[in-house]
Design a protein around this nucleic acid. Structure first.
Lengths: 99, 99
DNA sequence: ACGATACATCAGCCTCTGCTGATGAGTGCA
DNA sequence: TGCACTCATCAGCAGAGGCTGATGTATCGT
């Protein structure tokens, strides 16, 4: 299992991480996120685009609103890749390649 | 469990992700990583500094060499935070705050 | 039909960050 | 002691990415 740079990069930004944490609790539309984060609308929209393209978030148009929903499977994939990496590291913690 | 931006940012870079994957198999010194990645020595050294400051890697000076070892606990912490975030998202997948 | 609202996109600016060549410190070998 | 090697750090540069104001599109209420 190899690490996905796009997903990790999307999660690495503090504002996007905050959005992900907010969306973990409930589905929210952009105006909610603008209100919660205090950021400008264009800024939030840009971050949501990054999260969407990384596959971390689904957009659900609903009238003139757009609800955003977190994709737990995407989060779980990253968690698994990091977990298995930690496991292999633990297993070979004493191995050291000679110079 | 909140997401650690420093650790995620450290993992988000492709070259650093590659270094982490290499270190998951065995402890390596900088010259090994320079050889494996094909990057310049200064570049690798900078990436290792970022990984070190994020707590993802331990440096073990050994004569004129410096061995780097992955810290599985740090990796597991990120994995757990992402996993619990995925769990809470799954549990409340139908909740939607009204506009 | 018109105004208000929600959202996306764009161009411009600015900061951050990764890459490189050069230099310096520390270590081991002849 | 002198030389080669490993590694860290620095200054400089170039590219990426985040923030903002402005504009465009679509939808709802009156």
């Amino acid at each position: 299992m190899t690490l996905d740079p796009d997903v990790l990069r999307a999660l690495a930004d503090p504002m996007r991480a905050r959005i992900v944490e907010l969306l973990a609790g409930e589905a929210l539309c952009t105006c909610h996120l603008v209100e919660e984060t205090g950021a400008k609308q264009a800024n939030v929209s840009n971050h949501l685009k990054v999260l969407r393209e990384a596959g971390l978030v689904d957009a659900e148009p609903c009238g003139r609103f757009t609800y955003y929903r977190l994709r737990p499977d995407a989060l779980r994939r990253v968690a698994d890749s990091l977990s298995t990496l930690a496991d292999t590291a633990s297993a070979q913690s004493l191995t050291r390649r000679p110079c």
